[in-house]
Design a protein around this nucleic acid. Structure first.
Lengths: 202, 202
DNA sequence: TAGTGTAGAGAACGTTCGTTCTCGGCAGGG
DNA sequence: CCCTGCCGAGAACGAACGTTCTCTACACTA
């Protein structure tokens, strides 16, 4: 078998098993068996389990962000619509069979103490997602697109974890409502006025 | 040593070690040593590691919600102020030395596949937190306090996980800003009007 | 004082798992 | 044909860990 084909099959097997059952719960031999690759080849390609896990997360990061960007590109018009399309897509993702939360948050919970390679991949993923939201928000007619993006990021992250712990389809709707409210609140404020002052208390 | 004193010391040791380093990374013998309790006593009180973990999370749930409620009671006036005090407290919590995210989300990531006892405790904790927010939101002059609470819950969860992965003090401020915007958006809408219709797009 | 139950200390056991080693086989080049 | 090197299959190794067992000491009771 080709080396690159073996790597692909190993990463696919790692993703399937690690995401479904957790990293600690899946041994190297099980990944090897699922991929149909010899243990020797596995260790030639990934010198340790931590390397395999980091590579799995890297590949998943690529695919996850690609799928999100595709959906947004296909369904979004204005910057506001594109940001809301992010939350549409989250709803679709949550409803997929086998959804078990954010793989990166799960991996962080599992390996947060040790495994610096993994921590770095998780951080990179979250930063990439935040940067993507900031990019989308730059098209908004608001004074602080980065701030709006940061707040939407919190809503998205919260929806992912809440939906993982308590599988409730309404979480995605609530996230969408929250995102809508945050966006419209930001857009109601004229460009150039700093935020932080209450807008409806008095 | 008294049995109840031993249980207390074991739970304190478990909390310290499990929260700081993760559950898989800490063996029973280490908890026993930190608590100064014999292994036999440990297994008399907690018949398996899963029981010990579940008890640790239960105790932490109690204390965490107690601290939050104390802060809110001490700093909140109106329902709106009380809900915002929740986010003040999150900021204080995030800034504590040794903060490593939400113990329940971490435990879920680590043991989500197995350990049904632990999963049940995590679910209970999240439901209790949501119920607490709903209780606070009931004092708001809004048509859908449960919806507002659900959205604030997403922001709070997102802040916890974002802050755990990327320790950035601004996450708490952003969460506070997002909560303020969501609250004021909800309060600007007159009671009795259902939400879901955009409020600032046209 | 002898007996009984319980506790502490730690060895021991069995399992799992990450990683490495061994062995047989096969391909390619002289 | 022979030698070299790589590969697959799987045994083996060493460590960690959850759990149980053994042995000794000690408090309490008749």
């Amino acid at each position: 078998m080709n080396r690159s084909e073996a790597a692909e099959r190993l990463l696919a097997a790692a993703e399937k098993l690690y995401y479904a059952r957790g990293i600690h719960a899946v041994g190297m031999d099980e990944v090897r068996a699922e991929a149909g690759v010899s243990l020797k080849m596995l260790y030639q390609l990934f010198p340790s389990k931590e390397h395999l896990v980091a590579a799995y997360l890297d590949a998943r990061d690529e695919r996850w962000r690609g799928r999100l960007a595709d959906h947004v590109a296909a369904n979004g018009g204005s910057a506001r619509d594109r940001l809301l399309a992010v939350f549409d897509w989250l709803g679709l993702w949550f409803a997929e069979p086998g959804f078990r939360g954010c793989a990166f948050i799960n991996a962080f919970g599992e390996l947060g103490g040790s495994a610096p390679l993994v921590i770095a991949v998780v951080r990179r993923h979250k930063e990439s997602f935040r940067d993507y939201l900031v990019d989308l928000a730059r098209g908004l007619p608001t004074a602080d697109p980065a701030g709006v993006a940061a707040q939407l990021l919190l809503v998205a992250e919260g929806a992912m974890t809440a939906c993982a712990v308590i599988p409730e389809p309404r979480a995605a709707q609530q996230a969408h409502l929250a995102a809508t409210a945050l966006l419209d609140g930001a857009l109601a404020r004229p460009v150039g006025v700093p935020e932080g002052a209450g807008a409806g208390r008095d």
